[in-house]
C-alpha cells in the first residue's frame, strides 16, 4: 500500500483500495488494478491529482478487508475495487453503494476468509461512513488456484480505470 512516499507521509484524501487474493484467479482483480495504477501513477493519477489538488492513495488490502474498514473510518472518500459474483458477463463492472450490498440479493462478494468486505462495509455504514464510499464490483469468471486473471477482465482494464477516475472526480 502506498500511504507513504520516500520522504514521508502523503496527505490522505482519496483512497483506492483493491481487495482480493492474488493467487485465486480473478479474485485478484482488485489488487491487479491497484498494481496497474501504481505502475502508471504519474501518467494516469498524476494529472488528476494536479488538476484537482488532491492526493490519491493506492492500497492493496489483499485478503484483509478489515484494513479497508480502518481506512474508511478515517472519513476520507474511498473507492473499493473487488471481484464479485453479480450474475453478469465476466469482466463487466458496476459502481455500487453500500446500500446495494444489502438490497441486492444477487450480489455476493467473494472472500477467501469468513470476514468479508461486505460485512466490513455494512459495519462502516453502521458507524456512519457511507456517503463517500464507492464500490466497483468486477464480475469474475474463475477463482481457481493460480495467478492468472481472465482475459475477459484484463481486456477491460482501461475501461475500469476510466470508471475509477470518473468516481474520483465525483467524490472530490
Amino acid at each position: 500500500m502506498t500511504v507513504l512516499n520516500d520522504t514521508g507521509i502523503l496527505q490522505k484524501n482519496i483512497s483506492i483500495i483493491g481487495i482480493g487474493n492474488s493467487f485465486r484467479g480473478d479474485d485478484a482483480a482488485g489488487p491487479y488494478i491497484i498494481e496497474y495504477l501504481r505502475e502508471r501513477f504519474s501518467d494516469i493519477l498524476g494529472p488528476v491529482m494536479d488538476a484537482c489538488s488532491i492526493n490519491i492513495q493506492l492500497i492493496d488490502a489483499s485478503h484483509d478487508p478489515v484494513l479497508a474498514g480502518s481506512i474508511i473510518v478515517e472519513g476520507n472518500p474511498v473507492i473499493i475495487i473487488d471481484a464479485a459474483e453479480m450474475g453478469l458477463k465476466a469482466g463487466s463492472y458496476c459502481v455500487l453503494k453500500i446500500s446495494d450490498l444489502k438490497d441486492s440479493v444477487s450480489l455476493r462478494t467473494v472472500s477467501t476468509h469468513g470476514f468479508n468486505i461486505s460485512q466490513v462495509l455494512i459495519m462502516a455504514e453502521t458507524l456512519g461512513f457511507s456517503e463517500n464510499i464507492r464500490i466497483i464490483g468486477i464480475q469474475l469468471d474463475n477463482t481457481g488456484h493460480g495467478d492468472t486473471i481472465s482475459r475477459k477482465i484484463l481486456s477491460r482494464t482501461d475501461e475500469i480505470v476510466q470508471k475509477i477516475l470518473e468516481e474520483v472526480k465525483k467524490l472530490i
Binding site: M1, V66, L67, G69, S70, I71, V73, L127
Partner: peptide
C-alpha cells in the same frame, strides 16, 4: 472505531 484505528496503525 478505536479498534479500526489501532489496527490501521499496526498495519
Amino acid at each position: 472505531k478505536m479498534a479500526l484505528r489501532m489496527k490501521r496503525l499496526s498495519n
